[in-house]
């Protein structure tokens, strides 16, 4: 029997009596990670990884009922055995392995295979059915190494320093910003962060992740030459005016496409994603050894067709994951 089915509120595991990343309010929600398209308020109880608990709490508020498990630790929910595996997407991100009556399904959430010092690295989880995202499920998406991205950010920052400008770098405040702080050399100059990022930083630091960066407000008048990290929504906001004629950039996998960068009127785009690129997605599918694959977000059509042409049963499932990606 299928271990997951699509219902109005989300993907439901009947033997286990729980939903994974539901978009409607439910009794029991298992959450892969704390991004807003996955962790929505209104459910009676939540289960997530130890590393992700505080981030989920930040999203849901103090009254939410949250249970946490360590990666690799198995839990019985209803008639199903549930285990969280690291997904490498951000701190606390998990793939959910479900086992019932000899069948294993893995719901991988959002994931990346590349290493990231701010979170536990992705681990393959063998299964019969693999449920995957395809946010960047086209072969045009091929990520440069994190080292190359770091070098180009450094070069951009230095050039701005020479021109006496601030460098305003936009990134998802939850995950991407912290990965950048861990990546960038803080010896190059002062780094400031938007308060929304700082709130997340505190949670990361409390879990033992080393991060550079000062709070915003410490800069007084010294913006020229500084690197400022901010959420993408801050672009062209009243808040961003304080930096004067700053050079602007966004760190995102979408920056691989020139049009998406120009549409946002940014000076630079750095190709840095917390999702797997095309070959990463294919490697993850391969490593799962799954007979069939559900593709639940992003470029579902091309991914399904590619997998089918390469001999793997595959279906496209219309979910609400990936809405409001930055």
């Amino acid at each position: 029997m299928p271990l997951l089915e699509l219902r109005d509120e989300g993907l439901y595991c009947a033997p286990g009596g729980f939903y994974i990343d539901p978009w409607g309010p439910v009794d029991r929600a298992v959450i892969t990670h704390a991004h807003p398209d996955r962790a929505r308020p209104g459910s009676k109880s939540y289960l997530t990884s130890n590393d992700g608990e505080a981030l989920l709490r930040m999203r849901l508020g103090p009254q939410a009922v949250i249970q946490a498990v360590a990666y690799g630790e198995s839990l019985t929910l209803g008639e199903a055995r549930v285990t969280a595996y690291p997904a490498g997407h951000m701190l606390g991100s998990a793939q959910i392995r479900i086992e019932h009556a000899g069948e294993v399904w893995v719901f991988s959430g959002d994931y990346k295979l590349a290493s990231d010092s701010t979170c536990a690295g992705w681990e393959p989880a063998p299964c019969d059915v693999f449920v995957t995202e395809a946010t960047f499920g086209l072969p045009i998406f091929r990520w440069p190494s994190a080292g190359e991205v770091r070098d180009s950010i450094h070069a951009w920052w230095r050039a701005n320093q020479q021109a006496g400008r601030a460098s305003l770098l936009f990134a998802n405040p939850l995950g991407k910003a912290q990965r950048l702080l861990a990546l960038i050399d803080s010896a190059l100059g002062p780094i400031f962060v938007h308060e929304e990022i700082e709130r997340v930083n505190q949670i990361y630091r409390a879990r033992g992740v080393q991060l550079a960066g000062a709070r915003l407000g410490d800069g007084e008048k010294g913006w020229a030459g500084a690197l400022v990290l901010a959420p993408p929504e801050a672009h062209a906001s009243a808040w961003a005016k304080r930096f004067g004629t700053a050079s602007t950039a966004l760190a995102s996998g979408w920056m691989r496409i020139r049009g998406t960068r120009r549409r946002r009127s940014l000076d630079r785009g750095f190709v840095l994603s917390d999702h797997a690129d095309w070959s990463g997605l294919l490697s993850a599918v391969e490593a799962s050894g799954a007979e069939s694959v559900w593709v639940v977000s992003g470029f579902r059509g091309p991914m399904v067709r590619w997998l089918a042409e390469h001999g793997r049963r595959s279906i496209s499932v219309d979910t609400r994951f990936g809405e409001a990606e930055p």
């Binding site: 086209l138 045009i140 059509g301």
Partner: peptide, 13 residues
């Protein structure tokens, strides 16, 4: 061929 077409629609150039 079909995948090139899908890529072109995403890139637009």
């Amino acid at each position: 061929d079909w995948l090139f077409g899908d890529c072109y629609h995403a890139v637009g150039d």
